[in-house]
Design a protein around this nucleic acid. Structure first.
Lengths: 251, 251
DNA sequence: AAGTGGTCTAGACCACGTA
DNA sequence: ACGTGGTCTAGACCACTTT
């Protein structure tokens, strides 16, 4: 019987139970990239003999990570490491295009207005777990759908980690940030917390969105977290309030 | 070994598995009121002998209902039927009071502006599973916090079921609807789906909320469901858009 | 046919809450 | 001390997917 280190690692609610410790060890393998996104993890029976426990215990450990959204079980095929968020989910807050009932899943085109290294505001630095005055990347984007400007985004990223993006030519950015964070910086965004409030647009913002000055807008504030649970992005997104729609399920 | 009816009953995703069927049977007991909200259900071991299955199978059945939000397990004490929603959760969408960081949990005072029987709009009747032209209860409320009007609510209820409310004097309504639905009509609200959009107030609404005409407002559309999964309430809530705040967790 | 996860059994001992 | 749910074992057979 091997009975390894407790390994409280990150966010996994690890009590002292066997399956909790195993779950933490499996999570470590995912976080360290030993089991990359999309890959299948060893079969339950294999893990059971490896860890020297009963099958049911391994199943319980896997259930924890499935619940956390890190793993996905597929009957008859295996258990797979989930890919991170793509970032396309931002559109779920807005209902652009004709309300033909069809949920909009199209990815809006991204136009990078600016991208430069800055000294991070105190609160953002703290969010990233950095010291006050630490450097970060500040990105400003405008996003288009159906040849109309729809969203304005201000994005902050921690700078030692996201340095590769600084040297990347704008032409190679593409329309989605998270795949870029994965390929260039090795950061997998796995969870995000969004907060929605309402504001009005100032003159500059209104002009960029081709809306009247003072027009009401929805402001979505996003904190995105990597596999280790560290915040790796702070983002403000603004769009026409009248195009805003959000659905919440309350149990 | 007893192997009772399949009992697909309501929303429980009942495949053909043993624990699925047992989950459906347990749910039936809750829905029928045999196990009322707050009560403890029999111990796992008791249920296991009653159903003639292994303990683990019962545990799996209970897990399904816990996931659905119908049951709650408490270590060392037992497994309990959860109380329905209180309705106080509407306030989680708004941040009134000074932004002292403290989440507002206070229940706003309810002022009933009107309450009368009407012919339901086609779409609402369909939502309730009633024929077009069926009757319903239409309620208009204004809700106060800190001696200021904060929210306007329009509520529709299906009428054969909610008849007791029609005869109830306004003085006895109190501030929350759902406890009233439970005590007067035997309806337990167990789940709700909210949708948030953005509007502006018309003159009448603005006056009632003591805001300027045309002021931006958030509109929350709610469909509330009872234990059987039938819709038992349709509600529109409007409040100052600049006091609106909603947080969403994306995994 | 072989391998995977899904279901199920019949036990055991532990941790927690209450009396 | 007792009853509850929480953890764990060492098997078994089934359903699904791929070779």
């Amino acid at each position: 019987m091997q009975d390894n280190d407790p390994l409280p690692s990150t966010a996994t609610a690890v009590g002292v139970s066997r399956y909790g410790r195993i779950a933490a060890q499996l999570q470590r393998k995912i976080v360290d990239g030993e089991w990359p996104p999309g890959a299948a993890i060893p079969a339950e029976s294999t893990l059971a003999t490896e860890f020297g426990t009963a099958l049911g215990t391994i199943r319980q450990a896997i259930a924890v990570l499935v619940q956390e959204g890190l793993l996905e079980r597929v009957q008859g095929k295996g258990t797979f490491v989930r890919n991170g968020l793509t970032g396309a989910s931002m559109m779920r807050f807005f209902r652009f295009r004709a309300d033909a009932g069809a949920p909009v899943v199209a990815i809006p085109r991204s136009e990078i207005l600016s991208c430069r290294a800055v000294r991070l505001e105190k609160s953002i630095a703290a969010l990233f777990g950095l010291d006050t005055g630490a450097r970060g990347l500040a990105i400003s984007r405008r996003r288009w759908l159906d040849d109309k400007p729809r969203l304005l985004e201000s994005i902050w990223l921690p700078l030692p980690r996201c340095e590769p993006l600084q040297r990347l030519p704008k032409a190679e950015w593409g329309d989605l940030l998270y795949p870029l964070l994965a390929s260039q910086c090795g950061i997998t965004i796995h969870r995000a917390v969004d907060e929605v409030t309402f504001r009005t647009l100032d003159a500059d913002q209104a002009e960029l969105l081709e809306l009247p000055d003072g027009h009401p807008c929805a402001l979505v504030t996003r904190r995105a977290y990597d596999l280790q649970g560290n915040c790796a992005e702070y983002r403000l997104t603004q769009g026409d309030a009248y195009a805003f729609r959000y659905q919440a399920d309350i149990r």
